[in-house]
Amino acid sequence: MSTVAVLAQAGGVEALTSTGEAIAFWIFGPVALASALGMVFARHAVHCALLLALTMFSLAILYVIQQAPFLGFTQIIVYTGAVMMLFLFVLMLVGKDSRDSVVEVLRGQRVAALVLGLGMAGLLVAALARSLTSVQPAPGAGLGPNNLGGLGRLIFTVYLGPFELTSALLITAALGAMVLAHAQSSTHEKRTQRQTVIARLRGEHARISPLPGPGVYATANSVAVPALLPDGSIAPESLSEIIESVAVDVPDTSTPDAHSLTGRSSPDRSIDAGEPNDVSTPDGSHSGTEKES
């Protein structure tokens, strides 16, 4: 491939930089290139994200060896840290569709994209190879490992206006993201507590009171334990539809039991709460628990 040849030719030029830099470049350059290619070809979106993070990390290293340590670390913190994590969060949200289908719906799109991409690369590489044959880094005054002060001075003096503008842009973006990502449930209006009570009293619900909570006499608060009505019988509404209820002792209400508050069981009166004639269990494949409506 011509690109490789050009790269090799460029590498063959008289070394104008330190050998250590060359070694670092020849390690991290190909890594960046390979992981970028991998990102394009990986079918799973999470793999893409991880490969992109690797590319960005390699670029951060290249920034650092090009005497831009501030940018390198910003790259690592902002890009590989924050931005890529954000990507991963979004991938979690839309995870269902995170796998591309292999079928290309647009006819000729892949071929055209490849041809144009190669053309772009070839043109850029050719242009660079022809025009920048013998460049070398200038011994700039502001450059060097400790250029952070110079960078800060530049940002807060010459580029103060653009800097303030970017801060306004960031705030706007944050607000915009909040507005866009906020779930607007226009179909179902949210009711206040008062409206709910009024609706209950008007008989718009199956019953006025809430469903009885689980557990009896504080012996257990597990969802699996059904509630008991004052006469000692089991409240059917307290039985969960998807969790099998455990057996519960029904205290003897005719003769006061001194141990009734302790919840100790009396075998002769226990009933099986899982009896089908007691609780009407609908289809167990329900995924959501809808207590009301």
Binding site: A10, Q66, V94, A113, L116, G117, V125, L128, Q136
Partner: peptide, 30 residues
Amino acid sequence: MSPTNYLLLSALLFSIGAVGVLVRRNAVVV
């Protein structure tokens, strides 16, 4: 090593990104 190498690498990465935009369909990957 000439700094041109960095530019060449950059050109290649740019082209790869462009092709990726064109061929990938998942919006996040784009």
